[in-house]
Every structure is written in structure tokens, then in C-alpha cells.
Design a protein around this nucleic acid. Structure first.
Length: 436
RNA sequence: GGAAGCGUAUCGAAGUGGUCAUAACGAGCCGCACUCGAAAUGCGGUUGCCCGCAAGGGCACGAGAGUUCGAAUCUCUCCGCUUCCGCCA
């Protein structure tokens, strides 16, 4: 969410930003919201003047009552009661206008970083860096479900019976591999200085609205029937929500959390659940990281945490590339996003396994995540409290990551290579054997 | 899930319809004084949000609604906490 003052002062920049995101239908909202805001402030001013008068009058009544001047007090009461209807009207108008302004503000996209490439959709995302060699083996690499089945590691049929399409049972070594990856990811992030965190898997609507854009809420989130609770789509949602309505000391930043959680997603919208296997599912598990930091530090943190994910995949001997999310594909709350894609030797292309986002102050503004301003002596330009910046990034999301893992580490002899870093979590196994 | 109690600043806590919210009182924290220095003591400071160039004004006593000229105070709903009971990994 933008600052209305910023919109007022920079309407053209806001419109330019909207155009670059190919959301031309939102262009008129800019002028609308500026006009509504002006009306709102006028109504607010009037209502407040009236309240001031009422407050003054009411205090006088108190004085008159104390002096036992009942007639005068009653006359005053009548006078103020008359103001009541007027005030009710103004208050209603003030509220209505304020809500309209907020409604529009929630829909206006965050100002993007200059580095975001312009493009309509994900087909126009821009490759940044390739890490490692994209190898294609001499033998045929089977579909990931087949590899998993050969390891006796997946049961999709039963999952369809218990839960429907988009769910899975992972079994045996594949399930163990899944846990091993998460455990390794946890320790990897702890070693980077992050605090490990297991968050609530359900959150309230107030947090949902603060943490996600309207579109995401519609397409992603499961609601618990009869409760004000929603299943999280990622631990980021609860971890960022943890800071709701907070005013932190500067010294407490940055907050670095790495969280484990299952993630629940409806996946309605463009794609549905068409991809077979465990590529796109309603429930998966993820090791995530979030950063809450000073505004001026968020760009540096972005580069740093993106690097952590790349390093993580490299340590698992996997080939990845980074991809800059273009303007049209970028979520409305995001300043910048870079995706991490892993190499699929079977498809001979890269596919998404994680994404790193800088949300700027968008979530912070919605949720009220603030930092106590410093004295004029040390920070003359920043007298009052201000909003923090938030970032989030995937460490790893098995089972999707296992697709790339199995395809890359499958050897011609029907064994799956287990990278050294993972072995302590796999009973020191050096490989898994298909159809064992 | 049942019962009772509670929710006020950084913390403890007073206020139970009016001039009591920059919120008594106590503690903490910051500054100053005293001191060789410290402790003790004394003095001063110490919530956040909104509108406004400013002057100033408005709002907030867990959240929301209601009664009233006026609500921290009365009523209702919700949220949270504590204790006891019940149940349960």
C-alpha cells in the first residue's frame, strides 16, 4: 500500500508505475483517490471542528452541574444535542469517504524498483545468472512420478481417495529425503544467522489482509469454516504477521527468521492443477526466510538472501538460474522479485523452485510494522516513527524441489546420488536404489 | 468446553458518569545536580495515530457497537490473559 501523501504529490509517477504493470484499468483510480481524499480531509476537518465545539460545551455542562446551575446546564444540553444530528451526518460521511480511499489504496500497486524489467507476463521475465552446467544425460530421464514410484516413494492413488487431486502420500526413502532436505535447509539458514521458527499454520483475517494482495487472497487461501481463521499459504504469512501493530527499536533490526511450515494453496485462477505429480499441489512443505529491516537496508538484504538460496542449491550439486520477474508478472505488493529456477534434464529447461521478494513498506504499512524514529541529532530527516521494510525468500520447497533433485541425481545404473551435505540426514546413505 | 476474574503508558497499578489522560502513586529508562567516582538523594524528561504551512484541533484506556450533552467508568458482541474444573496429543 502506498502512502496517500505520496500519491497526492506524485500522481504521474504512480500512473507511470501502473502503466508499466499493464493495469491500465487502474489508471483512473489515481485521480479518483486524490479527489476522494480531498473530500475526506474536508469532511474530517468539519467533523473535528464540530467535535471540538461539542467537547467544549460538554465540559461547560460539567462545570454548571457542579455549581448547581441546572437551568443553564439543561439549556446547554439541548444546544449540544442539536449538534448531534449534524455530527452524525458528518461522521458518517467521513467514515464513508475514508473507507473509499482505503479501498482504492489497497488496490494501487506498490512502486516498483527501477531494476524490474518491463514485460506483460511471465514469458517476458529476464534471465539474470546461470549457476552450474545444465547437463543432459545420455539416458532417458523418466517423469518424476516414475522415479518416485521406482523408489516406492509416492502414492498418488490413495491420496486422491483420501483428499482428492493435488495431494500426495510420500513414502519411505522419498519421504525421508523430503525431511532431510528440510532439516538441512533449516541448519543451513541457522548457520547464516537466522532464527529458526515454527509458526502458526492458521492466521486471522486481519493478518491475511495485511500480508497478501487482494488477488492472492482470492486465489490462494483456504478458510476455516465458521472461524476467523485461514490456512497459511507460506510461513511468511504468519512470520510477517508476528510483527503486526509493533513499534520496534532500531537496535532490534534486522529481524531474521527462517520458518518451516506446511503451505496450503487453492491454486485457483489461471493454471488450476494441471501439472501431474507433485509439481503443483494443494499442500506442500517449505523452509522459508523473512527479513524485517531498515528501509535503506532492504536492497542489500535482497541480494544477500537471494544469494543464500542459490548457495543452498549449489551445495546440493544442483544447477539453477535466477530470473528477474517482469513488471506485469510482479505482485502488487512487491517492489522487486527474482525467481530461482532449477534445471530439469528431462524437460531440458529450467522451472521455478523459489522466489525472493522485496515488499518495501507495503506489508509494513498494512500491518503497522514500525520503527521508533531517532532523535533529530542523529537523524534530522527522520523525526517521527516510520515503516520498516519486509522481504521474504524461499529456501526450499520439497516436494517440488525433489523433482529437480531426482532428475539431476538419477544415474544410469538406476541409483540416485545423495549429495554429501544431505547424508547426515539420510542415515549416511550415499545413494538410493530404484526398485530395490 | 464450563465457571470466575481481569485487559489503562516500558512494567506494576489508581481511577467505577464530568474540569481524569502529556493518566495519581511506585518502578524502569534518559538527562542534569551533588560526588574523586559510584550508590543514595534531588530536579527535569519519557504513549501513539490523524488533519494542518502553522497556530491549533481531533482520536485512542484490548477491538467494535450502543446508552448519554458527556464513557476508562453503564449495556451488548468479539478478542486476549489469569485461575479453577473438564478433556486431550
Amino acid at each position: 500500500m502506498l502512502d496517500i501523501k505520496f500519491v497526492r504529490q506524485n500522481p504521474d509517477a504512480v500512473k507511470e508505475n501502473i502503466k508499466r504493470k499493464f493495469q491500465d484499468d487502474k489508471l483512473e483510480l489515481v485521480d479518483n483517490v486524490i479527489a476522494l481524499d480531498e473530500q475526506y480531509r474536508a469532511a474530517l476537518q468539519q467533523a473535528e471542528n464540530l467535535r471540538a465545539a461539542r467537547n467544549k460545551g460538554s465540559k461547560e455542562i460539567g462545570g454548571l452541574m457542579a455549581q448547581k446551575k441546572l437551568d443553564e446546564a439543561n439549556a446547554k444540553k439541548a444546544e449540544i444535542a442539536a449538534m448531534g444530528t449534524e455530527l452524525d451526518k458528518l461522521a458518517a460521511l467521513e467514515k464513508e469517504l475514508g473507507e473509499k480511499v482505503r479501498e482504492i489504496m489497497l488496490v494501487l500497486p506498490q512502486m516498483m524498483d527501477d531494476s524490474v524489467p518491463t514485460g506483460k507476463d511471465d514469458s517476458e521475465n529476464v534471465e539474470l545468472v546461470r549457476y552450474g552446467e545444465a547437463k543432459v544425460p545420455d539416458f532417458d530421464v523418466p517423469y518424476h512420478v516414475e522415479i518416485m514410484e521406482a523408489l516406492h516413494g509416492i502414492d498418488l492413488d490413495s491420496a486422491r481417495k483420501t483428499s482428492g487431486n493435488g495431494f500426495y502420500f510420500l513414502m519411505g526413502d522419498v519421504a525421508r529425503l523430503h525431511s532431510a532436505v528440510l532439516s538441512y535447509a533449516r541448519d543451513f539458514m541457522i548457520n547464516k544467522g537466522f532464527t529458526y521458527c515454527i509458526p502458526p499454520y492458521m492466521i486471522r483475517s486481519s493478518v491475511v489482509q495485511g500480508v497478501m494482495s487482494f488477488a492472492d487472497v482470492q486465489d490462494m487461501v483456504y478458510k476455516i469454516e465458521g472461524e476467523d481463521l485461514y490456512l497459511i499459504g507460506t510461513s511468511e504469512h504468519s512470520m510477517i504477521g508476528r510483527y503486526i501493530d509493533s513499534l520496534s527499536a532500531k537496535e532490534s533490526l534486522p529481524q531474521l527468521l527462517t520458518g518451516y511450515s506446511p503451505c496450503f494453496r487453492k491454486e485457483v485462477g489461471a493454471h488450476g492443477i494441471e501439472e501431474r505429480g507433485v509439481f503443483r499441489v494443494h499442500q506442500f512443505e517449505k523452509q522459508e526466510m523473512i527479513v524485517v529491516c531498515e528501509p535503506e537496508d532492504s536492497a542489500a538484504w535482497f541480494d544477500k538472501i537471494l544469494g543464500y538460496t542459490v548457495e543452498f542449491f549449489q551445495s546440493l550439486e544442483m544447477t539453477v538460474r535466477t530470473l528477474a520477474c517482469c513488471s506485469g508478472d510482479l505482485g502488487d505488493l512487491k517492489v522487486k522479485q527474482v525467481e530461482v529456477e532449477a534445471w530439469s534434464p528431462r524437460q531440458q529447461k529450467y522451472f521455478e523452485v523459489g522466489s525472493c521478494s522485496n515488499l518495501g513498506d507495503a506489508q509494513a504499512r498494512r500491518l503497522g510494522i514500525r520503527v521508533r524514529g531517532h532523535s533529530e541529532a542523529t537523524e534530522p530527516d527522520r523525526r517521527s516513527n516510520y515503516y520498516a521494510h519486509t522481504l521474504n525468500n524461499t529456501v526450499v520447497t520439497p516436494p517440488r524441489m525433489l523433482i529437480a533433485f531426482l532428475e539431476n541425481h538419477l544415474r544410469e545404473d538406476g541409483t540416485v546420488h545423495v549429495p554429501e551435505v544431505l547424508r547426515p540426514y539420510m542415515g549416511n546413505a550415499e545413494c538410493l536404489v530404484l526398485n530395490a
